[in-house]
Design a protein around this nucleic acid. Structure first.
Lengths: 164, 164
DNA sequence: ATCCTATCGTCAGGGACCGAACGATATCAA
DNA sequence: TTGATATCGTTCGGTCCCTGACGATAGGAT
């Protein structure tokens, strides 16, 4: 059923080297390819799209979350963006410098801070996201719709297992 | 054929928000789940295994490459490890501080530098890698062997497309 | 009213990460 | 031999990223 796809040189050589060590080759291939793809795609997006807006991948992610869900407490925003609270502090600072986001004190709780996208930030995401998605389409163009769904499903299972 | 797997809350809500924007939902789901899994697994590995050796994910990757292929020029080592030359300089410096790697000048070319793992570094990888692989098995335990192969294959296709 | 404890966002310190610029070395042409 | 050009690893400036510690605020119990 599954079409032939050549292993990358790295993968081929790596397998040869760790053979006979009682290694779970399937798990190894699956997981390490997740990292390879994530790395490659992240760099690709940053270089070919995000750099134009002086946005890092994380910066865009945070802005995207703000666009989709509206203003959020730092706490939640960090969780939703997949980074730590302290990292978010820095990222939001950068976003503020670019005029893409702003901080607002919580009305009732003096400890909390609300982060929101500015109009300029919203405009940027509206411009970037369709292009971002188009690149996602490009990147997966050699997979059928069913294969993409299967891929997403398998990743979802892993996410569930590892507790993401 | 494919078992039901619930979408994560994030994924469900995100879909609802970007509906009707002409978005390629399958590509979106596939790519963003790659990032989610990579992030979650990277953190998991660093916290539950690598921290014990004071190794970052990149530090371990570099050491692993050195273990599998032997001494390498900085140039090639960076490429093979998926990081830039300048990042490698820093990572190797850290590895040297831990006593896991060493620099050696190239015999014929004064510009080049060879990086190699020390005995201590080699011993560490031999200890870590089987545990690392065991965690990879854990993480993919709810996928069948065929599903793991399909996952690796799909990712390989993407890697080929994006030119990794 | 005053502790005790929980939770908030930030800062400090250290490492990872990149692109651009740099000094050193190599190579090839004239 | 000298000069132009290419390539090597490092440095620099800026951002990301984490853990751990911190001051501030909140809220419950006494």
């Amino acid at each position: 059923m599954s079409r032939e796809v050549a292993l990358t040189r790295e993968e081929r050589e790596a397998r040869a080297q760790v053979e006979g060590l009682g290694i779970d080759v399937d798990a190894f291939a699956a997981v390490s390819n997740v990292f390879r793809v994530a790395n490659a795609v992240r760099n690709y997006m940053e270089r070919n799209l995000l750099a134009e807006y002086r946005l890092s991948f994380s910066g865009f992610t945070v802005l995207w979350v703000l666009w989709v869900w509206g203003p959020k407490e730092s706490n939640v925003l960090a969780e939703e963006s997949g980074i730590s609270k302290s990292t978010l502090t820095g990222v939001v600072k950068t976003l503020e410098g670019l005029g893409f986001a702003a901080r607002r004190p919580h009305a009732a709780d003096g400890r909390r801070v609300l982060v929101e996208a500015t109009d300029k930030g919203l405009a940027a995401v509206r411009e970037i996201f369709p292009r971002f998605n188009a690149l996602e389409g490009e990147i997966t163009r050699d997979l059928t719709t069913e294969e993409r769904e299967e891929l997403a499903r398998a990743l979802r299972v892993m996410l569930h297992t590892v507790g993401g």
